[in-house]
Design a protein around this nucleic acid. Sequence first.
DNA 1: GCCAACGTTGGC
DNA 2: GCCAACGTTGGC
Length: 252
Amino acid sequence: MARARKRLAGAAGPGEPDPAAERRSLSAAHSPLRMGKALDKKGPEGKRTKTKNECEASAKVENSGLQETSEASEDCGKNLSRYWLMKSEPESRLEKGVDVKFSIEDLKAQPKQTTCWDGVRNYQARNFLRAMKLEEDAFFYHSNCRKPGIAGLMKIVKEAYPDHTQFEKNSPHYDPSSKEDNPKWSMVDVQFVRMMKRFIPLAELKTHHQAHRATGGPLKNMVLFTRQRLSVQPLTREEFDFILSLEEKEPS
DNA sequence: GCCAACGTTGGC
DNA sequence: GCCAACGTTGGC
């Protein structure tokens, strides 16, 4: 966002999590929570970002929970492709006097249609950012708005690096506990790929999720529903492909 | 380490 | 605007 808004990820407030909390989150495995996107710019880029990590690290972190391990281990070796869902608020909302709004239209309007995904302040979400690799696909999800749902597709164009907003006192995402020589929070850069052929509303995803819980369908464990509030979350390939297939169908 | 209070997320 | 879910804080 250019100013963005993002939602951040974490829930907690002021700030800074302690190591124990971090450990807990990591081990917990997963869950996604929420997130938001960010904003804007200040620097070269503006919005939120993601991170980078390697296979090993990422596989460990992530897998722990959310996805299946088997899948994860596979990834590590070869096809490491993973898919993501990242939340951002498309409607204006002030956070410490700063508008965190950042919609997919805002992303499209950025230079090179690229932004840094800043403002994530939740350990699980941060760890997912760190697990992201170049060229991976992510859904751009509109949250906390009149029409929540998946608006489009973007891809990771820069792996995780320190989120500069954690050091900026004026940022709504300033974290006084984070030190320059040991940054706590990360972001990645994302680039717009395309709008969904049709907007996929949260309600529709939920309907499928509920049906799939009974039938064993692809959305049965979708993190969007199993871990509320996670702003950066992983999707399996099956989840990703199923959601893309919804584009061709009539709204349900 | 437990756990109650607190604050945030985010759908409705 | 309400409020349920849930992560974080901080006393003990």
